[in-house]
């Protein structure tokens, strides 16, 4: 298979970047998108050019490291991570545009690599249950209704890849933040910090410079793990509840 790639090349955060065109052949349809980029990079190295930098690690769709915008879609045309997207979803002769996540809160580091540390700081603001090691009660002390456990799991599946932010026209991190808030707030173990968690995580999200939510739904469409759009409404509800309670103190 032959492809024309147009790839965003940017030396570092302080240098402007541009789309650069590469023609590449001998692409097998069994390759993953990242293996296609590997193939390009091997050729670039041998030509004495710098390979395209991109984040990747587990290559089985769970670590959340990889992610590029392919022809305008975060993670490309299939609902999966970039590492699990295979070249059989492209046709011989296609032109494929490859760009980094674009958001003010995710500055480009180099080429297709962006800085997503803002996500870590949102989690640090309250995306946890405070339980020092050794202080835990017996696991069966608190049964959790299966429906709640399933709801928690559905949101805990978030891999923190940032596709939601990349897809959102406002660069909003609401889906990411709501996934963690909903995961922990529905569990009895998370109840004592239920209000502080949502208030602190939302303000951390705002401080990082993510945009607001206009409910375009782009985030949930791009999410490789299927975090649903109603997560955002559920977090809004938590936030309003917490704000009301906090103001009564």
């Amino acid at each position: 298979m032959r492809l024309t790639l147009r790839v965003w090349r940017q030396r570092n955060a302080d240098t402007p970047g541009a789309m650069v065109t590469y023609d590449i052949d001998d692409i097998s349809e069994d390759m993953s998108f990242l293996e296609m980029l590997d193939t390009l990079n091997e050729k670039l190295i041998l030509r004495g050019e710098e390979p395209v930098a991109f984040d990747h690690d587990c290559r089985e769709g769970i670590c959340g490291a990889c992610g590029v915008v392919i022809n305008g879609d975060a993670h490309g045309p299939e609902r999966t991570t970039t590492c699990q997207l295979h070249m059989r979803h492209f046709d011989d002769g296609d032109t494929v545009d490859v760009e980094p996540w674009r958001a003010g809160a995710f500055p480009v580091v180099k080429d297709l690599v962006v800085d997503r540390s803002a996500f870590d700081r949102i989690i640090g603001a309250g995306g946890y249950i405070s339980v020092p090691t050794g202080a835990a009660p017996e696991a069966h002390a608190t049964p959790v209704p299966k429906a709640d456990a399933d709801f928690a799991f559905e949101h805990a599946e978030c891999i923190g890849c940032g596709a939601c932010v990349a897809a959102c026209p406002n660069g909003s991190a609401m889906l990411f933040t709501s996934a963690k808030v909903n995961h922990l707030n529905v569990l009895p173990q998370g109840a004592p910090e239920r209000e502080t968690r949502v208030l602190d995580m939302v303000s951390a999200m705002d401080e990082e410079g993510f945009g607001g939510c206009t409910l375009t739904g782009e985030c949930a469409t791009a999410c490789p793990k299927g975090i649903p759009l109603p997560s955002i409404a559920a977090m809004n509800k938590e936030w309003l509840r917490a704000t009301r309670k906090a103001s009564r103190r």
Binding site: Y128, I129, V131, T133, G134, A135, A136, P137, A139, T142, P143, V144, P145, K146, A149, A152, F153, A156, H183, L184, L187, Q189, G190
Partner: peptide, 15 residues
């Protein structure tokens, strides 16, 4: 420890 941290292990209908 993990249950207390909110790790969503699989559960049965009895919770």
């Amino acid at each position: 420890q993990c249950v207390a941290q909110g790790v969503p292990f699989a559960r049965e209908y009895g919770g």
